[in-house]
Design a protein around this nucleic acid. Structure first.
Ligand SMILES: Nc1ccn([C@H]2C[C@H](O)[C@@H](COP(=O)(O)OP(=O)(O)OP(=O)(O)O)O2)c(=O)n1
Ligand SMILES: [Mg+2]
Length: 864
DNA sequence: CTTGGAGGCATGA
DNA sequence: TTCATGCCT
């Protein structure tokens, strides 16, 4: 229930294809998109902790990196080093940094990613893992039938660790098609026999994965304007590692074969999870620096030196094995904000504390409201975190509390204060009713433990209406704002981009048109989601004591015993457990609508009463509902606009259903709402919720379903669209379509194929010449002549054989382009299998000049 | 100012 | 479950 990680079965360790997409200098890109004037200039994003003064740099674009600017530099340092650098400030709202802009941008990107697979896990504001195994499976089959061919343009800016260029890598794959057992001798020394089928297919599958990565990145670029990098590998850890190897606007495959070589000189700390204290301890304890050196220790040894889980995990990781599943998650599990109050800014007074708690609570509730609308969920719990100065020591604490059914910012702030109060021995200084006994250096409020809103209320409607009213209140406040300068001048809302209202309006109309449409459910699960433990080769030798308890704890105690140095250690491990993925959906219709409204109001309030009358109508309607049916609304009557709510022209017929009174409804009902009304209930066909049988509530409820359904449908449509548009050689193996000329050329012999699956079994040689080490059993199988090379091939082997031809062609084209391309740029002493960072050496990246060099893109430019 | 802010996830006692 | 801590972007 309480989500944790799932793990893939060990025998599938090389079967998945995982993509890690990481936005390039993300915050900078967001700013550059917003202010195109800054494009191509060195730029960094700065966060100012206290007013004015000297902020810290949190993001640096690549032009600035080239000049030595790094994260964590101070603004003035950066200016010193590079006077012409553009420094953009993180927006400050309520005297604290507000990163909403970047969160929204991240979500925008994730929405694009989501079109490719539901197996999407957002790992941070600018990173997401995609499990594209199923897509790769599918395309691998299509590759055999000729329905799909590799498109060189999708491999633009693609790198493979250990190879100087993609041509070499494709070359290798081609050879393997011709002789599938090519490397078996070596493989058998390194891999388990049972893994060999997967190992043999690894490269082609990763290559297909890279094609998908290319499509993904192109889509992101096209739809958001942002550039990103990607890693393609068999698991998350490796995909993440790979993505970082070639950064600006590139993608990197980490072939199975190249893992040992890469790890040989890879600092331990490069692995996600080993970059902190634990990684340090590992290196220290074992006297090693590089990940590959971990191979010298058995799993048992590692378990003994660390603890059981960490030992197993390390033993796996250093072999390139990571079984952690991509756990679909689009929305965050918690929403929080915090602020430091360093030095003189320590909070020493009760009033000040209340003020800041209120500010934080305000931000939280605002984000909560939006989140509730978008995701139909509400937080059940809040946590207040704080650091106070106790006798000169900074002491961090956090206290949690359940959230009441109806929470607002005052509630949050009050609960927070109470929690702090209750947890501080002497809260107020003796003899004072205003001075804190312990000054506060850090404050944070976060909410979480979300539950789906059981919508028997017009909850969604309420939130929606609140949002609308608030927007207007804000805009009206702005008009008065001049009279009340709040000690500091904030940047005016700039934005000049007039967003097309078309889409929103279209959505709206579509919404109405589809009002009665029923949602359908079609969630599917990925095949190999098992959750076993992950033993690595060698049986756990129990010579010695394996720490069942946490390694950390043991380490701490040892340290403590040794001296008085206080120390902490990190744990990173993997623990199988059950999980149920929360309902994920993309930005809803309502959220989009709100966004549009916000833009409208912040722009010209005087004009633009033109279009989207329907939206305005809905808004008015909702406001009217809010005004009439909320005894305890966050907004007073005066704050509500006198909207001409004649608008209850229903666009829909009232739903007729048998009244279904249910006593239990009361316990779900929010007392504050509609207590004055006794309404017969009807059951929602879709979710079974008991709803008051009044048209507005029903509409609101349907809105919610629609919002979900719309986004779901949009995604499905987009997925389908993508499937259709995806380059295919032929629609049907038997009936080649004339329009796909050049593509048909690439996969000539498609007619003969029978879509036989299981590649692993019959990777037979294509040419009669050489016989591979393990000779395939040949006798009573029917043979077939290849159209391409006229040799006779067993029918079951034909798919692979055709793959071979396909790959060969691709390779030829690659090499051809390669020659032309490499002429102007002689490759420097190509030390193969160096640190893969040097792969760029022969393929100058975009930073150098702008026209002449396009890495591998050049190789494919004419193919199209 | 005190020296790397703000936000978010996972783990284990 | 709560709370503290580590790790990450
Ligand atoms: N300590 C950090 C690290 C990152 N970020 C923010 C700013 C970054 O733009 C964004 C993404 O982090 P990355 O580590 O992915 O760094 P960038 O995306 O900026 O650059 P890169 O191209 O190396 O990914 O997260 C932050 O606020 N604080
Ligand atoms: Mg990034």
């Amino acid at each position: 229930m309480t989500s944790s990680r799932n793990f893939v079965s060990p025998q599938n360790k090389y079967d998945r294809v995982i993509l890690l997409v990481d936005m390039d200098c993300f915050f900078c890109q967001v700013e550059e998109k917003e202010q195109p004037i800054y494009r191509n200039k060195p730029l960094a994003v700065v966060q100012f902790s206290n007013w004015s003064k000297n902020g810290g740099i949190i993001a640096v674009n690549y032009a600035a990196r080239a000049k030595g600017i790094t994260r964590h530099m101070r603004a003035d340092e950066a200016k010193d080093l590079l006077p012409e650098i553009v420094l953009v400030k993180v927006p400050n709202i309520r005297d604290k940094a507000d990163t909403t802009k970047y969160r929204d941008a991240g979500k925008e990107v994730a929405n694009v990613l989501q079109k490719f697979t539901k197996q999407l896990e957002r790992a941070s504001v600018d990173e997401a893992y995609l499990d594209i195994t199923e897509t790769v499976n599918q395309r691998q089959k299509e590759l055999q039938t000729g329905a799909f061919t590799l498109q060189p343009q999708e491999l633009v800016n693609t790198f493979a660790v250990g190879y100087d260029n993609m041509g070499e890598y494709v070359n290798k794959i081609t050879k393997r098609f011709s002789n599938p057992y090519m490397d078996d001798e070596r493989f058998q020394l390194v891999y388990d026999q049972n893994d060999l089928p997967s190992v043999r297919q690894s490269d082609i599958r990763l290559l297909i994965g890279a094609c998908i990565a290319g499509e993904v990145r192109a889509a992101v670029k096209k739809e958001t304007g942002y550039e990103c990098s990607a890693g393609v590998a068999h698991n998350k850890i490796l995909a993440k590692l790979a993505a970082g190897l070639n950064k600006p606007n590139k993608q990197t495959i980490l072939p199975l074969d190249e893992i040992p070589g890469l790890f040989e000189t890879l600092p331990v700390g490069k692995i996600k999870g080993l970059g902190g204290k634990f990684g340090e301890i590992v290196c220290e304890t074992l006297s090693i620096k590089f990940l590959g050196e971990l191979l010298k220790f058995s799993e048992g040894e590692l378990q003994r030196k660390f603890d059981e889980k960490n030992g197993t995990w390390l033993a796996n990781i250093c072999r390139g094995i990571d079984l952690e599943c991509v756990t679909p998650r689009f929305y965050s599990k918690s929403i929080g904000c915090c602020k430091k109050f360093p030095g003189r800014n320590n909070i020493t007074g009760l009033k000040t504390l209340q003020h800041w708690l209120s500010e934080l609570a305000t931000e939280i509730t605002e984000r909560l409201e939006k989140d509730a609308i978008e995701n139909n969920r509400r937080a059940k719990q809040m946590v207040v975190q704080y650091v106070q100065d106790l006798d000169g020591e900074e002491v961090a604490s956090s206290r949690s509390n359940a959230l009441p059914n109806h929470y607002d910012k005052e509630t949050l702030a009050n609960i927070s204060l109470d929690l702090i109060k209750a947890n501080t021995k002497t809260f107020l200084r003796a003899g004072s009713d205003a001075a804190l006994n312990n000054s506060i250096k850090f404050l944070g409020i976060s909410v979480g433990k979300f539950e789906t809103i059981t919508n028997n209320q017009n909850k969604l409607q309420e939130m929606f209406a609140n949002q609308m009213a608030k927007k207007r209140r804000i805009s009206s406040e702005e008009e008065q704002k001049q009279a009340q300068p709040k000690e500091k001048e904030m940047e005016k809302e700039k934005d000049a981009n007039v967003k097309p209202k078309e889409t929103e309006e279209a959505k709206m109309k579509s919404f109405f048109a589809n009002y009665l449409q029923k949602p359908k459910a079609d969630d599917q699960k990925v095949a190999m989601d098992v959750k076993p433990k992950a033993p690595v080769d060698e049986p756990t030798d129990t010579v010695g004591i394996v720490e069942k308890t946490s390694f950390i704890e043991g380490y701490k105690q040892k340290l403590k015993a040794l001296n008085a140095v206080k120390e902490g250690a990190a744990a990173d491990s993997s623990m199988p457990s059950l999980t149920s993925t929360p309902p994920e959906m993309k930005e809803s219709f309502f959220a989009s609508f709100l966004k549009q409204q916000k833009e409208d109001t912040s722009k010209e309030k005087s004009s633009k009463m033109d279009d989207s009358t329907e939206m305005q109508g809905l808004a008015d309607e909702l406001d009217a509902i809010e005004a009439s049916s909320q005894p305890e609304p966050p907004l007073t009557e005066e704050e509500l606009q006198p909207s001409s709510s004649t608008s209850t022209k229903r666009k829909f017929e009232q739903l007729e259903t048998c009244n279904n009174y249910k006593e239990s409804y009361a316990e779900y009902a929010t007392p504050e709402l509609r207590t004055d009304l006794v309404i017969p209930l009807i059951k929602c066909d879709d979710c079974g919720a008991q709803l008051p049988n009044d048209p507005k509530t029903l509409q609101s409820h349907r809105d919610h379903h629609f919002a979900q359904e719309l986004s779901r449908q949009l995604r499905a449509e987009q997925r389908e669209e993508r499937e259709k548009n995806r380059p295919k050689a032929k629609q049907s193996p038997t009936a080649p379509t004339p329009q796909s000329k050049q593509k048909a050329k690439k996969s000539t012999a498609t007619a003969v194929v029978n879509g036989n699956a299981s590649i692993t079994k019959f990777l037979a040689p294509a040419n009669a010449a050489v016989a591979p080490p393990p000779p395939p059993a040949n006798s009573e199988f029917p043979m077939q002549q290849c159209d391409e090379c006229k040799t006779y091939i067993k029918c079951v082997d034909m798919p692979e054989h055709l793959d071979y031809h396909m790959a060969k062609k691709l390779q030829r084209e690659l090499n051809q382009q390669d020659m032309q391309a490499n002429r102007p740029t002689p490759s420097p002493g190509a030390v193969k299998k160096q640190s893969s960072n040097k792969l760029n050496a022969t393929l100058p990246s975009a930073s150098a000049s702008s026209k002449g060099n396009r890495t591998i893109a050049q190789f494919f430019s004419q193919i199209n």
